[in-house]
Simulated scan of single mutants.
Amino acid sequence: MMTDDALPVDFSFVLASSVHDMKNSVGMLLQTIEELSASTSPDNYDQAKQLSVLGYEAARINGELIQLLALYRVQNQRMLVQLEECYIDDVIHDQLARNDILFRSRNILVDVDCSEDICWYVDSELLGGVVNNVLVNAARYCESHIKIAAWIECDELHLAVADDGRGYPEFMLASPNAARDSVSFSDGSTNLGLLFAREIANLHRRGDRHGRIALKNAGLLKGGQIEVILP
């Protein structure tokens, strides 16, 4: 029973604190899975495949918890953006290495088209988080092929991730804000990753310009493509 002098509960703060605790627990689970994978005999293909599935699902949960915390901080203006000149090729390959087991276990070919000398002022941790989430999502929906490309156009950095899957639904392509409000109960998609990508891109600013994302189908490959555009 709440007394007259009891403080009201800030549910968003409670939720954020709970998410932080869950993230730590999932992190310990991921470490345990990695240790089990390292000790598994290469000849035990079935067990290795099961562990790779567990690792993928745990990593996906961990990524979504991190995104929730980041969005909470953005909403409460607590997100610090540290812009530094970074080699974009390094940002991409860091995330490819992070998901190497996932790609190999699913026989996914990943191509990279990014010049080694492309440098841009970005928050490499935040941009890396976006790239990681997009790669994990692409691995879930592609057939067997993912392509990452980065280039400079009109004094903006373009970083695109494309796959050979079925592509984005038409309603998401037609409305740039559809991902913010849509939830699919058929496949469990909340489109949290797109909201996260949009908010992180928006935090990258130069003068009166800010970053954005764009969705298309039949881009670099026949499936869906997300493009992060930063000033």
Rank of each mutant, 00 (worst) to 15 (best):
Q50N: 10
D10C: 08
F185L: 15
A197Y: 09
R104P: 01
K222L: 06
D155F: 04
H204Y: 03
D21V: 09
R205T: 14
R106K: 14
V19T: 13
P176Q: 14
D100G: 00
H210T: 10
I108Q: 06
I146S: 03
V131G: 11
H204D: 03
H158T: 07
N107G: 00
F196A: 03
E35P: 01
D117L: 07
A178S: 13
A97N: 12
L159A: 11
T32E: 13
S52G: 09
A59T: 12
L109S: 06
N217V: 05
R60T: 15
I66R: 15
Y141V: 02
L29P: 01
A201F: 15
G219E: 00
I118L: 07
D4K: 02
Q31R: 06
L203T: 08
A214K: 10
H93Y: 10
G167I: 04
V161H: 02
L157P: 07
D164V: 03
N44Q: 06
L71E: 13
L29F: 08
D113T: 01
W151S: 12
M79C: 12
I88Y: 00
S186H: 11
I118C: 03
I101G: 02
N107W: 01
N24R: 13
G188S: 06
Q75N: 15
L203P: 00
M28A: 14
Y121R: 15
C86D: 05
E156W: 04
V53A: 01
L195E: 15
A70H: 15
S52K: 06
N137F: 10
Q67E: 15
D94H: 12
A197K: 08
R60E: 15
A139H: 08
G167A: 03
Y72M: 02
P169K: 15
A160P: 01
S182R: 08
E125L: 10
R78V: 01
E35A: 11
